[in-house]
Design a binder for these strands. Structure first.
Length: 297
DNA sequence: AACAGGTTCAACCGCCCATAG
DNA sequence: ACTATGGGCGGTTGAACCTGT
């Protein structure tokens, strides 16, 4: 029944890794590949816990890691995503090639968190709909999920001094308000810079001209095991500020699903959606539109 | 130069879900 | 169906480093 223990933790070395240990670990993984962390220390001849080996490899030794200072662009992405999804460092790091969750977390704690000006936080955060999390996700899901609202209300308002990442990927002039004080403002700004044709594509088959400007109900559904799942749905419809290319004539009814990093129309789960522009998305449905390529163009 | 206080970040801790048994 | 473990996650710690006096 079950498996044998991960490690006995007796007689194992702890603390900083030496260059020699790094070399042993790197050589072993390059020869045998990742995985089987429990047996790795013994096989490689390391007096370390398997977990420690895994951490060392993932956070430091991997060849695809991007060492060095966090760039301004990366910083903006971190700030923006943190404002959206909170302390979900692995997901944030997934948007930053070569960066680890640990690195992102450290950078936030030591640099970015101080830039969030408490006085700029909105007094009335957007209504948030918390739905069951359909995504497979390991880790401390439930505990994290329960912190979502708390996190958002405490510290996740986009830094008004930090431009949204999409601003760095496009030369389009936008009406992004540098002093935006609400989550809705940020999303409206994002909506405003979307290409008209992209919106047209996105709305094919979607609900056009849907009812907007209705107060979004705040709903909290208990997910599996009574744990609040982490999808947030923020209704930002109908009030989009305009620029020359925006859709003043439409009554957009936008839903933003933070969990899936998608922007949706009409409030229906299966309605058309747009991905985060900086997210690599496999388009497997005509109703979905990856836009990262557009921003890179 | 010496010290104190602040900052950074690698590493550890403990929790959680998926899954082997 | 149930238990124990592997792997992954966010939170925390503390040594090393930095900065000001």
């Amino acid at each position: 029944m079950g498996r044998t223990p991960c490690c006995e933790k007796v007689g194992l070395k702890r603390g900083r890794w030496t260059a020699e240990e790094d070399a042993i670990l790197s050589d072993y993984i390059q020869a045998h590949g990742e995985g089987s962390w429990r047996s790795l220390p013994k096989n490689a001849g390391l007096m370390r816990c398997g977990k420690s080996c895994r951490l060392r490899w993932i956070n430091y030794l991997r060849s695809d890691l991007r060492r060095g200072n966090i760039s301004k662009e990366e910083e903006n992405i971190i700030a923006y995503l943190h404002a959206s999804i909170g302390n979900r460092w692995s997901q944030i790091a997934a948007h930053l090639p070569g960066r680890t969750d640990n690195e992102v977390k450290n950078y936030w704690n030591s640099h970015l968190s101080r830039k969030i000006i408490p006085s700029r936080r909105p007094s009335n955060p957007p209504n948030i709909t918390i739905l069951p999390n359909l995504n497979k996700r390991k880790g401390r899901t439930s505990r994290s999920a329960m912190k979502i609202n708390k996190t958002y209300r405490q510290s996740t308002i986009p830094n008004p001094k930090v431009a949204a990442p999409h601003q760095q990927h496009t030369t389009k002039q936008t009406n992004v308000d540098p002093c935006a004080t609400s989550y809705e403002d940020e999303m409206l700004s994002f909506i405003d810079i979307l290409e008209p044709e992209m919106l047209t594509m996105a709305t094919d088959g979607g609900s056009m001209g849907s009812v907007a400007n209705e107060p979004a109900a705040s709903v909290i559904n208990e997910g599996k095991d009574g744990v609040k799942a982490v999808s947030e749905q923020v209704e930002v419809g109908g009030t989009s500020s305009s620029n020359a290319d925006s859709f003043d004539d439409w009554n957009w009814d936008w839903d933003f699903d933070v969990e899936d990093c998608v922007l949706g129309l009409g409030g229906e789960e299966d309605d058309t959606m747009l991905s985060w522009p900086w997210e690599s998305t496999t388009i497997d449905d005509d109703d979905f539109l990856g836009v990262d390529a557009w921003f890179q163009s």
